[in-house]
Nucleic acid binder design. Structure first.
Lengths: 206, 206
DNA sequence: GTCTATAAGAAGATAGAC
DNA sequence: GTCTATCTTCTTATAGAC
């Protein structure tokens, strides 16, 4: 990793731990192994480093879905996969989604930084909402809609069903972000949530 | 309201909008209508103002439950109330809980401040978790447990049922905090959530 | 591209008059 | 208790040598 990119990486770590205003250019430089003035050969200001992080993240979020073993952009394809899914596979999938978000170092740090800085900048609040509310709900919603159509799931309100699937995952994720020692407890509750979700909306009741 | 308390009030407003580090002592003083040095006659430092806010909040949270028309500390009493509750009353209650959290000016500002500052200080993360995860889940859990025992609700996993009740409320609250213009949309979804919850766990399916 | 030295300015806090 | 004036410290950023 070149210096220019190491600066972004170390800055993201620090911003996610302390928040933008509490991180000094010297702190970033120190972690990179250079002095503060050298850093200005790579980025013209502290703000420019912050903006480069946001931009890099925007690129990453496009690629991200691939890591989840779903197309992420083509729900018709994904629904085909989900069509014949078993309860255990469904639970496994929910867990993997959760664990990916929880452990992927980059998304984890970025999520924490967004949480801290979201009220600082209206644009950031919008990014937060898009990534952690609108996009998951609309994508999962489309997927679940197709699953309802094919009889895998059953409900008369797909939007609420999607909310019932996603909201507990989101809440448990915020708990783990704040206190990683509660991860095991959260994973157990996540498992119980997914099993209950399947029981409520799965084909057995459908 | 005396000057000492007005300082806390204006500081909380600013902290909740910009975060601690981005608020200057002069900003607080200006809103109170005094100059920065005068402020130091009331609090010995900026940090002391912050700590006084936290302390004041701790006192408020004890009294809060009363405003919700539940005892808040005695679930046996509350369950007695909930025992004969109708679907419409249940939905109304969930909505009132949501609207109280959403609109009460003090809790709103405090919640936003905690959201921003939670990673600065481990103690704050603990306060956040207690107020918005553990306490709501454990209290609602006790209440729902009693309602299951009395046959108003039905489930074999009270903890997950409570999560299914609370997680969507929490998620929709975070959406409204970030973008108040989406309040109407969220209230509609909240209504649908509560109706669906009643359908799933209510006595009709028992 | 990295360094040392340093400018420029911001922000918390104090001194002392009123 | 409030003010003006000021101190001190910290932080971003630049200048210019290597």
């Amino acid at each position: 990793m070149d210096t220019k990119h190491r600066i972004l990486d170390e800055a993201l770590t620090l911003f996610s731990e302390k928040g933008y205003a509490n991180v000094f250019v010297g702190d970033i430089a120190e972690r990179v192994g250079i002095k503060a003035p050298s850093l200005y050969k790579h980025y013209k200001s502290k703000q420019a480093i912050f903006e480069a992080i946001i931009e890099e993240m925007n690129e990453r979020f496009v690629k991200e879905a691939g890591a989840l073993n779903i197309s992420g952009t083509d729900p018709t394809t994904d629904a085909g996969i989900y069509k014949g899914i078993s309860e255990e596979q469904m639970i496994e999938l929910g867990k993997n989604l959760f664990l990916y978000y929880l452990h992927d170092d980059y998304t984890k740090r970025f999520r924490k930084m967004l949480t801290i800085e979201q009220f600082h900048d209206k644009e950031l609040a919008a990014v937060y909402m898009k990534n952690y509310y609108d996009d998951p709900l609309s994508y999962q919603g489309m997927l679940f809609g197709l699953m309802v159509a094919s009889g895998v799931l059953s409900t008369d309100n797909v939007q609420v069903m999607t909310l019932h699937f996603y909201a507990p995952i989101y809440l448990l994720l915020t708990v783990c972000d704040r206190d990683p020692s509660r991860e095991e407890e959260c994973l157990k509750l996540l498992d119980a949530h997914l099993r209950q979700f399947d029981k409520i909306y799965g084909r057995s009741i459908g």
